[in-house]
Structures are given as C-alpha cells and as structure tokens.
C-alpha cells in the first residue's frame, strides 16, 4: 500500500554503503569493562537488531552511535567520519519517555524544527502532517500526561522523524507497551523506515520483534559485550510481528539458546 511520504525525504545518497561502523570498540566505565573489541557495520537502508542479555552494554553501543559517548579504544564512524560529538544525523528513540511535559503534542513534535530555526507556520504544518501519519490527528493540543503510553510513544516517534534523520537508533522503544499497541506501532515503524529508506539500529530483548523487524540480528554476549553471531533474516518469508511462524522457529530457537547460554541459567 503506498503511503504518503514526508514533506521532504532525507537525502541518503551521500552516505555511501556503510552508514555506521564500529571498529574494535572497547569501553570501560568505573573500572568495569562494558564493551570488548566490538566490530560490526550497518549498511545504508539496513535494519539491524542487536540482541543480548540484560545489562550487556547494548545501550552503550547506541550511545556510541549517537555520539553521546566516546570509546576508550577503537573507532565509531558515521558515514565514514569518526564521531566526536552528538550525531545530529541520527534520531534516537529510547525506552524512557522523553517528551517535555509542559509542551503540548504539536509543540513537542515540532521542537527539533524550532531548534533548527524553521519558521513557525512551516513547523506547525509539518508537525500536523507527521502526527496524522502516526495516527494522532486530533490530539495536537493535548499535553503528554493526557495521552496513553502508546500515544506518547507515537508522539516520540513523530518527533524523531520530523527532522528527517538518515538513521534511527532505537533502544527498546516498545518495551513498555501492551502487546497489541506494540505490534501496531512496530508495523507502522517498519513501513515508515522502508518508505524513507532509513537505516535502523534497534536494541531489543524481544526475539519476535528482532526477527519480525530486522534484516540482520546481531547477537551480543553478556558483559563485557562481544559480538557472538550474526543471523541474516532478511530473506525469511512470512515474518510477522505478532508471532513466529512455524517454519521460522529455528531462528527463534537459535537466538533463545544464545540468550540462555549468556545469562548462565539452565
């Protein structure tokens, strides 16, 4: 089904083939080793899911990709350039609610444009368009506390998309949502990403989500995080976000076995 596209699509042609590359990245925090020689790449337009046990340093990987942290050794490159400050080409959607409680929905969504100095009329117009796209038409003047968790997440998504990032960094963004809402938002997200040709790096615990959304699933060890395996799921047919089709259960089992081996449980 063709979907209306944003006012302007991000120009991703400058990115080249490799959008994000981690090269032998290590990081310590308070004497604790968080990342241990992690290397992987994300190609343009690719949807990569990182999956690993709790507290393994997945979020740290996203912070590095966002330029909000710097590695102790190794390099993180975005579009070929080493990241030294906040990566303003990336949109970062976290598990926490990051809406400003004193702003209504439309001015929350248009905040990135306000910061970029876009004129008020254009800001409002673009915010309205993108709110309609994520199914929040009519809620422009609501305050965040008047919305449900799923709606707030949609507002966050709209705010992340409005400044047309080339790349999305998603940190378990749907973890706190109920099952139906989660599947709906996941489907929306997937179609938006494909429409816009966005490159996505998703961190998750949810195996069904990883298989359902990603082209490639990267398995991470327990802390200090190392790369364990990469599973290519792009070719898998009949992917669904609500459940795993019987013929795809082997991928689920493979990831599940990995997680179990890393959490030390039986």
């Amino acid at each position: 089904m063709p979907r209306p596209i944003l006012a302007a699509e991000p120009d991703v042609s400058r990115l080249g083939k490799k959008v994000l590359s981690f090269d032998n990245v290590s990081l310590n925090y308070d004497g604790l080793s968080i990342l241990d020689n992690v290397s992987f790449e994300v190609e343009r337009g690719e949807f990569v899911a990182l999956i690993g046990p709790s507290g393994c340093g997945k979020t740290t990987l996203l912070n590095l990709a966002a330029g909000l942290a710097t590695p102790a050794s190794g390099t993180v490159r975005y579009a070929g350039e080493i990241l030294r400050s906040a990566n303003t080409s990336a949109g970062y959607l976290t598990q926490e609610d990051a809406l400003l409680p004193w702003r209504d929905v439309i001015s929350n969504v248009s905040l990135p444009l306000e910061i970029k100095g876009v004129a008020r009329a254009e800001r409002v117009e673009r915010a309205r368009a993108i709110l309609a796209k994520v199914g929040l038409k009519g809620f422009e003047r609501h305050k965040p506390h008047q919305l449900s968790g799923g709606m707030r997440k949609r507002v966050s998504l709209a705010r992340t998309l409005i400044y047309q990032p080339e790349t999305l960094l998603l940190d378990e963004p749907f973890g706190a949502l109920d099952a139906q809402t989660r599947v709906l938002i996941q489907e929306e997200l997937l179609s938006i990403c494909k429409d816009l040709g966005l490159t996505v790096l998703l961190v998750t615990h949810d195996i069904v989500e990883a298989i359902g959304l990603a082209d490639r699933v990267v398995l991470i060890s327990k802390r200090p995080a190392r790369l364990c395996a990469t599973i290519d799921v792009a070719h898998v047919a009949n992917r669904r976000l609500s459940r795993i089709e019987p013929q795809n259960e082997r991928y689920f089992d493979q990831i599940w076995d990995h997680l179990r081996s890393q959490t030390g449980g039986g």
């Binding site: 966002a66 906040a86 990566n87 970062y92 926490e96 400003l100 910061i115 970029k116």
Partner: peptide, 22 residues
Amino acid sequence: ASVHHNNFELFGASPWQMCRLL
C-alpha cells in the same frame, strides 16, 4: 533527566537554546 539533554544535543541545540527551551 539526561534523556532530555541527549535529545537536545541530537537535535543540534545550542547552549542558549538548551537553556531557553529545556
């Protein structure tokens, strides 16, 4: 919350915008 600071940085906010808007 640091998530707000991080977001403002990713939006490319100047220190003055950070102060005025956040």
